[in-house]
Simulated assay, not measured.
Amino acid sequence: MREALWDALKTVNDPELHRDLVSLGMIERAEVEGGVAHVKVNLTTPACPLKGKIEGDVRAAVLAVPGIEDVNVTFGAMVRPPAQPALPGVKHVILVGSGKGGVGKSSVAVNLAASLAVEGARVGLMDADVYGPSVAHMLGQGGARITANAERKMLPIEAHGIRFISMANLSPAGQALVWRGPMLHSAIQQFLKDAAWGELDYLIVDLPPGTGDVQLSLTQTVQVTGAVLVTTPQDVALIDAARALDMFRKASVPVLGVVENMSYFVAPDTGLTYDIFGRGGSRKLGGLPLLGEVPLDVEVRQDADLGIPAVLSHPDSPAAQAMRQVARNLAGRVSVQTLSSLPEQLPVV
Rank of each mutant, 00 (worst) to 15 (best):
L5C: 11
D7T: 15
D7Q: 13
K10S: 11
D14C: 13
R19G: 02
L21I: 14
V39G: 07
N42D: 08
L63N: 13
A64I: 01
G67P: 03
G67M: 08
D70P: 09
A77M: 04
P81F: 01
L87F: 09
V90M: 10
L95P: 00
G97F: 10
S106C: 10
S107Q: 07
A109K: 03
N111V: 05
L116M: 15
G124M: 00
Y131G: 14
G132I: 06
P133M: 11
M138G: 03
G140V: 03
R145F: 03
I146R: 04
A148L: 09
N149A: 05
I162M: 09
S166T: 07
V178A: 13
W179I: 14
S186A: 14
Q189K: 13
Q189I: 01
Q190Y: 11
F191H: 00
F191C: 00
L192R: 00
D194G: 01
L200M: 15
P208T: 10
L216G: 05
L216I: 13
L216F: 06
T219R: 07
T219E: 06
V222Y: 06
V228K: 01
V228C: 08
T232A: 14
D235H: 12
V236Y: 12
D240C: 11
A244K: 03
K250F: 12
S252M: 11
S252W: 10
V253E: 04
G257K: 00
V259E: 08
V259S: 03
E260H: 08
M262I: 11
A267S: 12
G271M: 12
T273E: 09
Y274R: 13
F277Q: 06
F277G: 05
R279S: 14
G281N: 05
R283Q: 14
L285M: 08
L288P: 01
G292S: 08
V294P: 02
P295Q: 03
L296I: 10
L296S: 02
V298T: 12
R301I: 06
S313A: 15
S313R: 15
H314G: 02
P315R: 07
P315K: 10
R324D: 05
Q325S: 15
V326F: 06
N329R: 14
N329S: 14
G332K: 02
T338D: 02
T338L: 05
L339E: 07
Q345F: 11
L346W: 02
V348T: 12
V349Q: 04
